[in-house]
């Protein structure tokens, strides 16, 4: 445990000396809520007293977007719908710093001599990446709340909202981040190239899932054709049709995307309209199991590879 604690202390020291840490925090904690408040004020000034779709007052919209609760909720939901997701941008950049840089700066030979216990090095780096992710996400919620509180003074918004649901979503998103971090560590370590690793972290899951969707759309699994006969023969068609429920991205962002339902309800948008928002209705318990599985697989692969790695 001492060795892991030493690695955590050292890597936190390094993280604190990297500009990208502060850039990410600045973007997520300051720029984003400030922009939303500005947009909120523009809406208030130009559309005060109007109704959206004839039945939702603009004040409600402002509350959903720019109140302390609304801002904090959008801080969690927004990153999950960006492409590439801001969550993955955080994870990939931190992983590049902690894993990729060791290779690009030829530092493994130094790190693994200063701390020869390889699993302790890996565990310590993982914990630091997870901690950085948690601090950025929790910090974004706190800053969103503070900016929202400021907004109450000129937007006429209040503090009400389902805070317990929001905090549960935030904690779950932080926990799910562990699978994303192990995935990013594995790819950046295996590909031995930081830039290629980052690009792969962003796009490999989406590429694989996109290929599946293209196949499902163009060929399909029913009825039997020359292209899908093999799956039918192997009795895999049901599994393949169920596959999207186990996709990495849709489950990774399930806690944040799950919060979209409450936004729609509050804005009076029919629930079925939310179907267009990809797999936002996956049960959280299912996603937790799926991400737990991904985490175990990626972590074991990484640990096995890292322990055998020759530092050339």
């Amino acid at each position: 445990m001492n060795a892991v604690a030493n690695v955590v202390r050292a890597e936190l020291f390094k993280l604190a000396h990297k500009k990208r840490t502060y850039v990410l925090a600045g973007l997520y904690w300051i720029l984003y809520p400030a922009l939303v408040l500005i947009v909120g004020n523009v809406i208030r000034v130009n559309l005060a007293g109007s109704f959206i779709d004839g039945n939702v007052p603009v004040g409600t919209l402002l509350h959903e977007l720019a109140s302390p609760f609304g801002l904090a909720r959008v801080a969690l939901v927004g990153p999950g719908y960006m492409s590439p997701s801001f969550y993955m941008i955080i994870i990939a950049l931190v992983a590049a710093l902690l894993i990729g840089e060791e290779r690009s700066q030829n530092m493994w030979k130094t790190t693994l001599v200063a701390q020869p216990q390889r699993l302790a090095v890996l565990t310590g780096k993982f914990l630091v990446a997870w901690l950085a992710f948690a601090v950025l996400v929790i910090g974004a919620t706190v800053f969103a709340f503070l900016f929202g509180a400021l907004g109450t003074t000129f937007l006429g918004t209040g503090f009400s909202g389902d805070w317990s649901g929001l905090l549960t979503g935030m904690v779950m998103q932080v926990l799910f981040g562990a699978a994303g971090i192990s995935f990013a560590f594995l790819l950046i370590f295996m590909l031995r190239n930081v830039a290629l690793g980052i690009v792969s972290v962003f796009f490999l899951p989406a590429l694989l899932e996109g290929l599946y969707m293209a196949y499902a759309t163009l060929v399909g699994f029913q009825p039997v054709t020359a292209f899908n006969a093999v799956f039918q023969f192997l009795r895999l068609q049901n599994t393949l049709e169920e596959l999207p429920r186990y996709f990495f991205t849709s489950n990774l962002y399930a806690p944040s995307r799950g919060l979209v339902g409450s936004v729609l309800t509050d804005l009076g948008i029919p629930a079925e309209a939310g179907g267009g928002l990809l797999f936002s209705t996956l049960p959280l318990s299912h996603s937790a199991m799926v991400m737990g599985g991904y985490f175990v697989v990626f972590a074991l692969l990484l640990a096995w590879r890292f322990k055998r790695h020759d530092v050339a």
Partner: peptide, 9 residues
């Protein structure tokens, strides 16, 4: 050096 010292403990 501080980083290496922290890493070693």
């Amino acid at each position: 050096l501080i980083h290496a010292a922290l890493l070693h403990g």
